[in-house]
Design a protein around this nucleic acid. Structure first.
Lengths: 244, 244
DNA sequence: CGTAAAATTGATCTGTCTCAACGTGGGTGG
DNA sequence: CCACCCACGTTGAGACAGATCAATTTTACG
């Protein structure tokens, strides 16, 4: 069975066996982290790159008045800080939402990876998809109603978790509180509560013992205006070199 | 005198003379584009990478109901679509705001550039700063008041334009309409108008024959909660290889 | 000059926030 | 094993930032 990192990177393109073996080796040394713990703080100059293997984490910034804005969800298979090779100093925080299993990948290992063309391109793909996701989140917060906004987030998480085998039949574990959804969607906790109630009343979502269930996925996607193109899950590039 | 692209890329690190010559050559063939014209549309598979040399452009997405959300401003020195090497299909549109001078850089030229270590890192830096800017915009739209939001945008543009020599003494040309600011900041045009009036009444900004003037830059930065760390303008990396 | 785009003004409406409670379930210590 | 407790979810009422609708004025420009 493929490890989670291999599975994630092969969404973009198949990898040579040697690369897959390197990834197997990379993923071996994981550690456990509590829920609600900071992995990296703004101002840090991290020495290695973190990868989430289990659990949910997030990127966030704190404002002077103590509010926080969550800018990204990190789910298993996601890198926390690939950019530290270029941008030494973190301009935001990364914290866990639930308890997580995390690997610390040494810089030398990442350099080794970037020397292999297929892996280098797969890492680049990760970084560009993160950026595309950020653009979609900006649209989400800027232009959609609270109901659509939250529905859109739930659709995105469904697709992302499906690609790493953590969701199926429109259902997945969502170990986060309404307050955390509020910090993500730029809404008050109270409003998130009311919106979730309405989504449940419309039977767009339900909760079955802790897990989110989306009874009719196409309906929720249509309701939220979800278009998965920004996740770039289908543009496989099997060649060893960029086209042309 | 350095060309604009060299100037922009050397914000990150000095470039070897050979690289600078390559950039001089790259920037030679520019073309003019009208204001309010699309450079690239969602769904396109662009053949070359576009670079803005003069004028303002933006990334945007259109919603089913016709509204648009602008997700980034592109100013002289900014690349439109470096990511097409990996993500073939555009997931958003790029359009000019004012008349622009644009270079179309062939894919082969970009490949040539990425084979030179200093240039490759400079291009990576551009892409990561774009991503960091997107995160800050998410905070801006999600967590700040309309007044702070617009003030923050004006502070960011001041800094970005200063780095390419297009702003000085807290003043720069801002060839965009209030409706465009509204599409950017997720506000109505009318509210943007009122907010700008209030900012002028507070003497936080003024307009002198078409140009924006910020009489007291530190005051506007403080007012908007502007922290330039996300632009990563000061972490120069002069070495030929990544540290460690 | 005439015209269209942009900026401005006023009045009203509404989605979301804030404040202030209250309910509830799972974990812990006595 | 029960009682307490704290985090989380829920409810109601009132306030407000910003949207919407409908004109009117100003500006840029052919």
């Amino acid at each position: 069975m493929d490890n989670l990192l291999t599975r994630k990177l092969e969404i973009f393109a198949p990898l040579p066996d040697a690369d897959r073996r390197l990834l197997d080796h990379t993923v071996r040394m994981a550690r456990l982290v509590d829920g609600r713990a900071d992995l990296i703080r703004e101002g840090d100059d991290p020495l290695h790159v973190r990868l989430i293997l289990e659990g949910f984490a997030c990127r966030y910034k704190l404002l002077p008045d103590g509010r926080r804005q969550i800018m990204a969800f990190l789910v298993p298979g996601d890198f926390c800080d690939l950019h530290i090779f270029i941008l030494r100093t973190m301009d935001h925080n990364i914290g866990t939402l639930s308890p997580c299993r995390v690997v610390d990948i040494p810089r030398t290992r990442i350099l080794e990876m970037t020397e292999r063309p297929a892996l280098a391109r797969a890492l680049w793909w990760c970084s560009l998809v993160d950026e595309a996701t950020l653009r979609e989140w900006l649209v989400n917060i800027g232009a959609r109603s609270a109901e659509q906004r939250i529905a859109h987030l739930l659709c995105e998480l469904l697709m992302r978790l499906e690609t790493v085998g953590l969701a199926s039949n429109g259902s997945y574990d969502l170990p986060i509180t309404q307050a955390e959804i509020a910090d993500t969607m730029a809404l008050s906790t109270i409003h998130v509560n009311r919106v979730l109630q309405r989504l449940r009343a419309e039977n767009l979502i339900t909760f079955k013992n802790g897990a989110l269930v989306i009874p009719d996925v196409p309906r929720l996607k249509a309701f939220s205006g979800f278009n998965p193109n920004y996740l770039h899950l289908t543009e496989r590039n099997g060649s060893k070199e960029p086209r042309r």
